[in-house]
Design a protein around this nucleic acid. Structure first.
Length: 295
DNA sequence: CGCCAGGAACCTC
DNA sequence: GAGGTTCATGGC
């Protein structure tokens, strides 16, 4: 077991929120210790205030994975400045509430292949169900590691699995998407690495050529595996928050005529309003959903 | 039972 | 391009 002591500039950091806020699936907490898969390895991580104990990877890998190289204060100052610029010196109490609840979150830097599979499984589902699917995929099609934990299935393994086998992991209609995308990655092993060099729109278009990857899933992969903090995945929560609290907040009492905004309208508003860390702001909102519902 | 959830594919117009 | 339908699964 290794030890990592957080420096003052790295706080606040909240391991529980970071691993349970819906950016990664299949991680389990047993007696204060989190365990899960990252980059074909089984990691075990435990936080005690500014003390992180861990095993399964190097300290550099842990810092990169957990986003501990991000400066929370710098992120907050950047977002705040952009809000002030946009509103003309008005503070945003709703954002501040959400931020203060969830400011210990870090955007992870997941393995792109594992993130791809995870978010294909996420379509039209919820976090507990998605986690079940990921755990089943690792148990049935992954490779066994220590502590009876398994890795993700490799592209080769997943692409040569039958639809029946993949459906047995509760993936439903997403099973053929998973197999097709695995086949493509098996035959184009550099594809996910080339995404790193691309501009946002090019990278998003490239990811969307994969089966089961649409605008939302592509954005999740870019934010959670490639550290593209300007990317804003728009799900039901973000759509409602932005629509109700930001785009539709004019003094209209008749809420019957609320406009429907497109995916890009909502995402682009967030980038204009929150700036280059809009993806972080998005995650603060997502994580605060039940504590500060928008309506 | 119906409705919803980190949606995408497929179709029509 | 914008709008509808369909697709499994689990929780409530």
């Amino acid at each position: 077991v290794n030890l990592l002591r957080l420096k003052p500039w790295q706080s606040p950091f909240d391991l529980d929120l970071t691993l349970s806020c819906g950016q990664i699936f299949g991680w389990k907490k047993v007696s204060d210790s989190w365990s899960g898969v990252h980059n074909e390895k089984i990691l075990i991580i435990k936080q005690n205030e500014d003390e992180i104990s861990y095993s399964g990877c190097s300290s550099d890998e842990l810092i990169c994975f957990l986003g501990l190289d991000h400066d929370p204060d710098k992120i907050f100052r950047s977002i705040s400045e952009h809000i002030i610029n946009y509103t003309g010196n008005c503070e945003d109490q709703y954002f501040l509430n959400c931020y203060n609840f969830s400011k210990g979150i870090r955007i992870l830097k997941q393995d792109p292949w594992e993130c791809l599979i995870s978010f294909i499984c996420s379509a039209n589902s919820n976090v507990p169900t998605i986690s079940k699917r990921i755990i089943l995929l690792t148990e049935k099609l992954g490779e066994e590691r220590r502590d009876k934990c398994n890795t993700f299935p490799t592209p080769g393994k997943l692409s040569s699995s039958s639809e029946k086998e993949v459906r047995e992991c509760l993936t439903g209609y997403r099973a053929p998407y998973l197999i097709r995308s695995a086949l493509f990655i098996r035959d184009n092993p550099e594809f996910l690495k080339e995404i790193v060099t691309m501009e946002y729109s090019e990278a998003k278009t490239a990811l969307m050529t994969l089966s089961g990857v649409g605008p939302k899933v592509a954005d999740c992969i870019l934010l959670f595996a490639y550290a593209r903090f300007e990317v804003v995945p728009v799900d039901v929560r973000i759509r409602r928050i932005i629509t109700l609290r930001y785009l539709n907040n004019s003094e209209k009492q008749n809420m019957t005529s609320t406009k429907d905004y497109s995916y890009d309208e909502i995402a682009n508003f967030c980038r204009d309003y929150f700036g280059p860390y809009a993806g972080y702001a998005q995650q603060y909102f997502y994580a605060s959903w039940s504590i500060f519902p928008p309506d």
